[in-house]
Design a protein around this nucleic acid. Structure first.
Lengths: 218, 218
DNA sequence: GGAGTTCTTGACCGTGCGGTCCACCATAAG
DNA sequence: CTTATGGTGGACCGCACGGTCAAGAACTCC
């Protein structure tokens, strides 16, 4: 029942790839990216395992062995999405020469066409919340924490803009951050309905102008 | 092959309920309401025919005979939703003593708990767009037209507020309407993530204050 | 090379789905 | 009452889905 001869100490000497054997023929990150795109395009329910196999190039067995069932795979993809989003957000907010510019970009950037498809398919996190929020508490909870993190990041940037004299110093940074986030989500959503880019851009500028009034002259 | 004796002229004399026979045992409107609630709670894909039978109290045959397949039933429910929404919007915007109050309510009202559940389940039109927008052009198109109508209604109200001296006269009513609609959608969406009501209300007030500055003193 | 282990492939399974159909019912007209 | 007609309910169907499994391939270590 206990140690059947060998297969024992190996975990001690080389715990991670216990014995190695056949290596994986795929890159987990790439698979996760492909799967994420698929979920993003079609949503959770409308994505079948066959779709996931197609876009990942893996068989069912490999997918299940590596990620568990469909839901877990989806959650992994969702987490990778929010992680990346926060990475980009952090970068954009910190690298901008002036914090105010970064905040304005927050509203206008989603309109631009980075990959050609633009924001026509919206935000994966938002889509997932809409589709699964009522049914899957874990998705809802993740959404909640994600938006809290975003709020904090934006709040920091607002505070910086205040220190740089570009925004009124009196306002609560977090409150403004929430307003900006709501405005951005609203814009991304309206883009989903097929509103033309010009109108969308104009609306973004209008919101930016009213939520982020130029204060540099003070 | 042609006229088998009777069954002929009846359509001429009484074309609508041709022969009447057994009348329907359900009210189409009530069924549509029940079905709409179900789709609203669970989304399109996550709602099974069994769910629809349960909430409507009808058998499959009756549902299919009356509404066609699941998708058509959904579209009917969606249209009834947007029709009602526009009705409420029209009423709220026209009945308010001052247009500015109505516009503020636009942002703050969704937070209040009208039915107890509040906006935790969001807006059916928005949810549907997120879930089906990429796959069903008809849903997308309906979303587009719906938001255009909403924009027009809100734009009218903005114009009225301008005439009443509560908003700066120079601004484009439609542009402000779009900004307000985006802000509202963003708020409703953030409410879906489980943000507490107090924070939500504060954000709504903050947005209202910045997008609808008090101009009555001018 | 042999042994051991993991990864891969794809056939297979049970289930629950959307959708169809038909026997039965309730009603209106004659 | 009889007859025609549309409504009703549920049995039934085929299918595609998510998920399992076993046999073989690929690799490391000895």
């Amino acid at each position: 029942m206990r140690s059947t001869i060998s297969m024992v100490d190996r975990t001690v000497k080389n715990p991670y790839p216990v014995r190695m054997a056949r290596p994986r023929s795929f890159d987990e990150k790439q698979v996760l990216n492909a799967v994420r795109e698929q979920f993003w395009d079609a949503g959770y329910a409308a994505t079948s395992l066959e779709d996931l196999m197609r876009v990942s190039g893996l068989g069912k067995g490999s997918l299940y062995a590596a990620f568990g069932d469909k839901r877990q795979l989806f959650l992994r993809a969702l987490h990778s999405y929010t992680d990346d989003s926060h990475g980009h957000l952090r970068k954009a907010l910190s690298e901008a020469p002036r914090a105010l510019d970064a905040l304005r970009m927050l509203l206008e950037a989603p309109i631009d066409d980075p990959t050609g498809a633009g924001t026509r398919r919206g935000c994966l996190m938002a889509n997932s919340t809409c589709e699964l929020g009522n049914a899957d508490p874990e998705v809802l909870d993740h959404a909640h924490r994600t938006y809290e993190t975003s709020t904090a990041l934006i709040g920091d940037c607002v505070a910086r803009a205040q220190r740089e004299g570009d925004l009124p110093a009196g306002a609560d940074p977090i409150a403004l951050a929430r307003a900006l986030l709501a405005a951005q989500q609203g814009l991304v959503f309206m883009s989903r309905t097929g509103l033309d880019t010009a109108t969308l851009t104009a609306t973004a500028r209008s919101l930016a102008a009213q939520l982020l009034p130029d204060h540099s002259g003070d």
